[in-house]
Design a binder for these strands. Structure first.
Lengths: 340, 340
DNA sequence: ATGAAAGCGCTAACAC
DNA sequence: GTGTTAGCGCTTTCAT
């Protein structure tokens, strides 16, 4: 199979005895070009197997039709949902996605952003690493008016649109639900509260408690990295407590599930001894027995929203700057783990 | 914040009173350039906020440092593992990943491949859609000697390296294990057997049976799309059977789990009434009770292997053509669901 | 309705 | 060790 030479608009021009300019215009369906000429151009292009060279186009137009995506980790169910939503919109709109993960490291996030920058992405979709406290490392993009949309793990910033759920409301609803079901001493497993999304959930948790005249107890708010292991650790801590909580609200399903399982192994009954509500609606939450009540976190919708907002902005259909945040609907899913 | 003009090597050249060529060489650390000059160039570049224009480079070099990835679906645990492995290697080696999903549709797979083609990816990493029976739609790549590596969902092809596990062996080991534990009437839930990976597993299943002098029974091999729903359907079918199987080997964990759960709800005991082995080692398999025995499917390692093979080929360190397939180690993980 | 010419930013051959 | 020159493939003035 011989390596074929790449066909260019000049090849088409030569064969048709017209100029490259005309070919270029014809290919782009510029209406100033005669219908007939256009048709001929398209036909020959197809016949010769012409494919336009994106790099020449990019070089000229200074636009790449590429969107950069940076996520904390690729190997999570939530991320895969988000990417799926983004990919659908991007493909539909003729954009490519280039994707990288920060592995929850600020340093890697910076490195990724540099790569994205020198790849001249048209826009950026970012979910911040857990280490990230500000977004000054994205300033080069902002300086060049390259739009950035933050999603899920966001930081409030004048320049960037943020897309997330109402974490306060979610935390409030989860806690309120447990209270309604008669649970009173509710332990909360949180991620790093320096992170806006976790601090909001804590606020919601406290608000719900206050409505039942319960003073939040600092010892009942445990900060963890929300892994399976930390779920087990929390369970072990609970087992050692003199006055055990009667419910747990965890900011993550995996953590909740392994906590539950460890407690059950120790002989406790869920939800009778301890009720549980998780967060994310991971597929695991429907598998564990009893099924875990949780907050549905709309990953796919979030991916779609982020991508279409960005593309609309790029196409000047809308302007990110006029909106500062978009709140997606999340909802409490009540299952057996919180029904005494 | 004013939109800054893009800095080019000419700007650097002018300020340093040297030629653009020297700047280019200096930036690329070409040793023919004086150490001192190089240092000056790098310093000024940094100071001016210079970023090289990939498109000019690509246009010249006809190489994009971009790898295209096409997967059947983005929103799966396995895929997310694979991508994570690929991303790590690619970033390390200075390659970008552009990612798209076929949604198990041949037509979308073709469309994706065209986009990748016109994006001039340096190479392609593909896991085929369930509809795909041959890879002729990738011929344009092969004609241009753009390397393609197939992974997971592969088809045997002269031109492409395939990376997968030994599906025959995995099917054999899963079945053999059940037989060893005393199960004799083993139902197998398979994906579409036109697909090589599933047909191999079936062969392994049959081989194990034959070693125990058990004739495979066509009614005990059920072809499904391997979703949660099909797991439930299979369970319902089993409940209606006169002579029920005493074990199930499912080619997918989710399917196995929902089958198990449905049977348990109907009062059957796992593994005493029916033993179970799944496939993939999904996180769910460690959550369900009893824990599901399964085949560990090394997604992360597969992603790494595929990416590094491709990059080595691109860097002429190795040649894909000399290898035709790479088999990754998979292993049986024995848990409670198959221990009578 | 079409074309000529210039240039996007970079690198590689060839010179010195 | 460094510079000159040409050209990658395309689009976009400005002409006609």
């Amino acid at each position: 199979m011989p390596q074929e030479k790449e066909i260019t608009i000049y090849d088409i021009a030569k064969q048709l005895n017209i100029s490259a300019t005309t070919v270029s215009r014809g290919l782009n369906n510029n209406p100033t070009i005669n219908r007939n000429t256009r048709k001929k151009i398209h036909e020959l292009a197809k016949q010769l197997g012409f494919r336009s060279n994106r790099f020449a186009i990019n070089l000229r137009k200074k636009q790449t039709n590429t969107i950069g995506v940076i996520v904390p980790r690729l190997n999570s169910y939530f991320t895969s949902q988000v990417l799926s939503g983004m990919e659908n919109i991007a493909t539909l709109e003729g954009y490519n996605l280039i994707i990288s993960q920060s592995s929850e490291s600020l340093q890697k996030e910076k490195a990724n952003s540099e790569t994205m920058f020198s790849s001249h992405v048209d826009g950026l979709l970012v979910s911040l690493s857990s280490e990230t406290q500000n977004i000054r490392h994205f300033d080069p993009f902002l300086k060049k008016k390259i739009p950035i949309i933050l999603f899920d793990r966001i930081i409030s910033d004048e320049q960037c649109l943020g897309i997330s759920i109402d974490n306060f409301k979610a935390g409030y609803e989860a806690t309120k639900h447990l209270l309604k079901k008669g649970f009173r001493k509710i332990l909360h497993i949180s991620g790093n509260p320096l992170n806006f999304m976790y601090s909001e959930r804590i606020k919601g948790y406290k608000q719900a408690l206050s409505e039942y005249n319960i003073m939040p107890d600092a010892k009942l708010i445990i900060t963890k990295i929300l892994s399976e292991e930390s779920g087990i650790e929390v369970a072990e801590a609970i087992l050692k407590m003199k006055h055990r909580p009667d419910a747990v609200f965890s900011s993550n399903d995996a953590c909740a599930i392994y906590c539950m399982k460890t407690l059950m192994q120790a002989g406790l009954s869920i939800p009778n001894d301890i009720g549980f509500v998780g967060f994310n609606n991971d597929p695991m939450s429907k598998v564990v027995e009893p099924n875990l009540s949780t907050i549905n976190y709309p990953g796919y919708a979030m991916g779609e929203a982020a991508a279409s907002q960005l593309i609309n902005h790029l196409n000047k259909i809308s302007d990110i700057k006029t909106t500062n945040s978009i709140i997606l609907r999340s909802e409490l899913i009540i299952r057996a783990s919180s029904l005494k």
